[in-house]
Amino acid sequence: MIPTAFDYQRATSLDDALAKLSASNGAGKLIAGGHSLVPLMKLRLSEPTMLIDIARIPDLAGIREQDGTLEIGAGTVHHDVATSPVLRQHCPVVADTAATIGDPQVRNRGTLGGSLAHADPAADYPAVMLALDAEIHLRSSTAARVVLARDFFQNVLTVDLAPDEIITAVRFAPVRAASYAKLYQRASRFAIVGVAAALDVSDGVIRSARIGLTGAVSHAVRLTTVEAALAGCEPTSRACAEAARLAGSDLEDINGDIHASETYRRAMIPVFTRRALDGALARLTVQS
C-alpha cells in the first residue's frame, strides 16, 4: 500500500521543528515513531502533504525525576518507558501500561507523545495519564502551555492541541498504588476495555481515587462515580468491588464493533475496574 506523495523535512531541534511547523501554514504533520500515522497514510485515511520528522530531536526523549515529579519526554518510545528503572521504582503503572502496547517492534518505534496526540479511542496511555492527573506540556513557536489530561482528550482522535503545537513532555506526581488492567484485542493488542486506577491512601482510608477508562467510549474518560464511591472507604478488596460495580453505569454511547459488542464492553467495564483497583491495592500492601 503506497501513501500519497508528500514532502519530508527532518527537524534538528525543538525550535527548528516549531519553525518548520509554523512555516508550513497548517500543511505540516509531525512524525516521530509513525506507528499510528504511517498505517493511516498507507490506507490513505490520512494524506498529509508535508511530514516534519521530530524523532531525533535531542531532549525530546527521556525520563527524568525532579523535585518529586516525574517527566517523560514526548519522544520516548514505549520500550524505554516499559523498561525504565525510575518508573519501575516510583510509578510502575506507567511502565506496566507501556509494556502492554502492541508488540516489541511497535514498542521500539511508537512514542508517548504520538500516542497522546493521535488519541485512538482504544489507546492505553490516555487511561493512565487520566489516573495520574498528568500535565501535558505543549509548545508552539510563540508560547508554551500546560493542559491537564482530563481536559486534553476531547473526542474521537481529537485533543486540545493546535496545528502549530508540539507535545514536549508529560509530568505527574508518581503514585505507587496504581495499576492498569486491560482486556486485549488479541491481534492488535489495543484495549477493548482498559482501566487505570490510582489510589491515595493515608491512615487506613482512601483519601481519593482516580480512575481512567479507555476503549469504551469515543475518548478516554475518568470514572468519577466510582472515584466518589471510593473516597473515605477503607482500602479493601470488598470496598473496591462494591465501587467497581458502578463503573460505566452513567456512560452513554459505548463503542460496539467487530471485536466486542456494546453490551459486552459495558459488562467488562466493572470487571476491569475491579481488577485495576485490586492491582492498586496489592501495591499498597507491598508499600506499607
Partner: peptide
C-alpha cells in the same frame, strides 16, 4: 539494533 517493522517506516526516516 532494535527490531522494527520495515513496512511501517519510510526509508527517509
Amino acid at each position: 539494533g532494535r527490531s522494527a517493522k520495515s513496512c511501517t517506516i519510510f526509508a527517509v526516516q
